Amino acid sequence: MADDKTKTGKADRGKVAGGQKHEVAYAAKKAGVKPAEVKAAIKQVGNSRPAVEKALKRK
Score class of each variant (00 low, 15 high):
1 M>H: 07
1 M>Y: 08
1 M>V: 11
2 A>M: 11
4 D>C: 07
4 D>Q: 08
4 D>T: 04
5 K>W: 07
5 K>D: 13
6 T>N: 12
9 G>D: 10
10 K>S: 12
10 K>C: 03
12 D>V: 08
12 D>C: 08
14 G>H: 12
14 G>M: 11
14 G>N: 14
17 A>S: 01
19 G>T: 04
21 K>G: 11
23 E>K: 12
23 E>D: 10
24 V>Q: 02
25 A>D: 13
27 A>R: 03
27 A>E: 06
28 A>E: 05
31 A>W: 02
32 G>D: 06
32 G>T: 09
32 G>C: 00
33 V>C: 07
35 P>W: 03
36 A>Y: 00
36 A>S: 10
37 E>D: 12
37 E>C: 02
38 V>D: 00
38 V>R: 01
39 K>T: 08
39 K>E: 11
41 A>R: 12
44 Q>P: 09
45 V>E: 09
45 V>W: 05
45 V>A: 01
45 V>R: 09
46 G>V: 02
47 N>S: 10
47 N>W: 01
47 N>M: 03
47 N>G: 06
47 N>K: 11
47 N>R: 10
49 R>D: 02
51 A>G: 07
51 A>R: 12
51 A>P: 05
52 V>C: 11
54 K>H: 14
55 A>E: 12
56 L>G: 06
58 R>N: 14
58 R>V: 14
59 K>L: 10
59 K>A: 02
59 K>I: 03
59 K>C: 00
